[in-house]
């Protein structure tokens, strides 16, 4: 894939539409948290950030991408199919018997590294992978995509302390900071206040970006990946849950709301 000529914005829009279409067919999928992360995943996979080999998803020479916010990564299904990890026909069988693309992705899906969906596990496992790669003298890097809500899980902070203690500068945390967990705004539940200040206090190298400006996300990811200063790194992408769907976008209960099928149809009928 030539990242210089690929129109990342057009690709992001295509992924957004495909994610809506999947949800139209499989309403069990979590739509709102999958739409907030579209540009993050498009930048990671099409923006020249991750090294991967769709024909050998677990090849040693890949960069690792741990998708901790499992439910909120349905947008990865069209991306992985488009990149050749599996057949596009599978997109028609999401949540169906005989398919392998479930409501919460599992590592039976080519391209998924670990078991997620149960939240707050990805960063710790990724930290172990990053330590292992350091010990193997590998130059591969580990990326983790996490939601802000799942950072309520304390195991993340055990891992955050460990990663800075061991100077894991091959570890890159991307936070889909949509500000909403299941029952409302995280600021009203248990606020993170400033995630960048918290992570910085834990010894991390932090940067922030508009998570829906795919070119800015790409630039942030590339810059983060190129940084090796003895600290684990984080990119906090400010996003909107349910982005682009009227009634869903940034609604406090968007995680558990399903837009009406007619609304999705009308959105899909609009020209790309």
């Amino acid at each position: 894939m030539n990242s210089e000529t690929l129109d990342l914005r057009a690709k992001a829009h295509w992924v957004w539409r495909e994610t809506l279409a999947i949800h139209r067919r499989a309403p069990e999928t979590r739509l709102a948290s999958s739409l907030s992360a579209v540009e993050i995943f498009v930048a990671l996979y099409y923006g020249g950030v991750l090294r991967f080999d769709a024909s050998q998803p677990l090849a040693a020479h890949r960069d690792r991408c741990v998708i901790s916010k499992g439910h909120g990564s349905i947008c990865m299904y069209p991306i992985l199919a488009d990149l050749g990890f599996f057949s596009k026909d599978e997109l028609l069988r999401v949540c169906h018997s005989g398919g392998f693309l479930g409501g919460i992705p599992d590592p039976v899906i080519p391209g998924y590294e670990t078991v997620n969906g149960s939240l707050g596990h990805g960063l710790g496992v990724a930290t172990g992978m990053a330590l292992g790669l350091k010990r193997l003298d590998s130059d591969r890097q580990v990326f983790v995509v996490s939601g802000d809500g799942e950072l309520h899980e304390g195991a993340n902070w055990e891992a955050a302390m460990f990663a800075s203690q061991h100077r894991l500068d091959n570890l890159n945390l991307v936070i889909d900071d949509n500000g909403i967990s299941m029952l409302g705004y995280t600021d009203d539940i248990v606020s993170h206040h400033s995630l960048s200040e918290r992570l910085t206090a834990f010894g991390w190298d932090c940067r922030r970006v508009d998570g829906h400006d795919v070119l800015a996300v790409q630039a942030g990811l590339l810059e983060m990946k190129a940084t090796a200063a003895g600290k684990p790194k984080a990119l906090i992408a400010k996003t909107l849950k349910g982005r682009g769907v009227p009634g869903l976008e940034n609604a406090p209960l968007s995680h558990i709301l399903n837009p009406k099928p007619e609304l999705i149809d009308s959105l899909l009928e609009q020209l790309p």
Binding site: L123, G124, V125, T127, G128, G132, A155
Partner: peptide, 11 residues
């Protein structure tokens, strides 16, 4: 978690 990550890298 760290043990799982190390094991995934072949340890």
């Amino acid at each position: 978690n760290v043990s799982a990550g190390l094991a995934l890298e072949g340890f």
